[in-house]
């Protein structure tokens, strides 16, 4: 298992610095929550690590530098992500979505064949995310929460070793949140997981460690209790956590 090591990560958009010299260590197998007010730069940080936006500094996964690589190369190194708004292939079935996610290593010849049956890893992921019964349904017909699970399932079959999840429980019911939290705990046994989340209740229950971003900088870091006790965090964020509770 590998961890994520970020040093001096900086992203600017036309002079506006969205991520400002962030240092971040996520050890192997951690379940790290990344929180912060709207516009803190959380998504942008994930964008930088996954190659979507240009950044300076360094972001290493294990020993491998990620910055400067193309998006699909970073993905092949075992870095997977989800998006703030669930993006699945709506016109393909659940099975096809997962099969595509599992297949970036397939040879050209393998791609030209038809899929026969359900591959083992896909079957296991279907079981894990509880969508076995929806196998042949178009992903576009899934409920919002199910789409988010499908995305997580796609990361599993993609065999991502570092999962970067952007607000995975936004819009979910309480039961769905709990199920997702348990699932993330399971996943973090063998993989390194970073979760961006606004939901404080969810955070308290499932976070192992927390990093607070504010205005592009790391404001605080530690266990849930440590971060909650931090005066500065209370000022910028937790202070009005009751009003942002459950905000998506």
């Amino acid at each position: 298992m590998s961890g994520l090591t970020i040093r001096g990560l900086t992203v600017s958009f036309d002079g506006f610095v969205a991520v400002d010299g962030v240092d971040l260590d996520v050890p192997p197998g951690d379940l790290r929550f990344l929180i912060g007010p709207n516009g803190a730069g959380k998504t942008t940080l994930v964008d930088a690590v996954t190659g979507l936006v240009k950044a300076t500094g360094s972001a290493r996964f294990g020993e491998t530098e990620l910055l400067g690589r193309e998006v699909h190369r970073i993905a092949r190194l075992g870095v997977g992500r989800t998006f703030q708004t669930a993006t699945v292939f709506e016109e393909l079935s659940v099975l096809q979505n997962l099969d595509i996610a599992a297949g970036s290593g397939r040879s050209a010849l393998g791609l030209l064949r038809r899929r026969r049956g359900v591959p083992d890893d896909v079957a296991r992921a279907l079981e894990t995310i509880g969508l076995t019964g929806r196998l042949d349904d178009l992903a576009g017909t899934l409920a919002h929460g199910q789409k988010q699970w499908l995305e997580i399932g796609m990361l599993l079959v993609q065999d991502a070793r570092l999962l970067l999840l952007d607000e995975p429980v936004a819009g979910m019911s309480h039961e769905e949140r709990d199920a997702t939290g348990e699932l993330l705990h399971q996943i973090a046994l063998e993989r390194t997981v970073v979760v961006i989340e606004h939901d404080m209740d969810f955070l308290r229950r499932y976070a192992r460690t927390v990093t607070v971003l504010h205005a592009g900088k790391v404001l605080s870091e530690g266990t849930v209790a440590e971060v909650q006790a931090d005066q500065r965090v209370q000022e910028v964020y937790l202070g009005h956590s009751t009003s942002t509770e459950g905000a998506a």
Partner: peptide, 16 residues
């Protein structure tokens, strides 16, 4: 059927 991870125990099925 309401599907989802909640429908089954989480101890099983996570691929290694």
């Amino acid at each position: 059927v309401v599907d989802g991870p909640a429908a089954r125990p989480v101890e099983e099925g996570v691929p290694s």
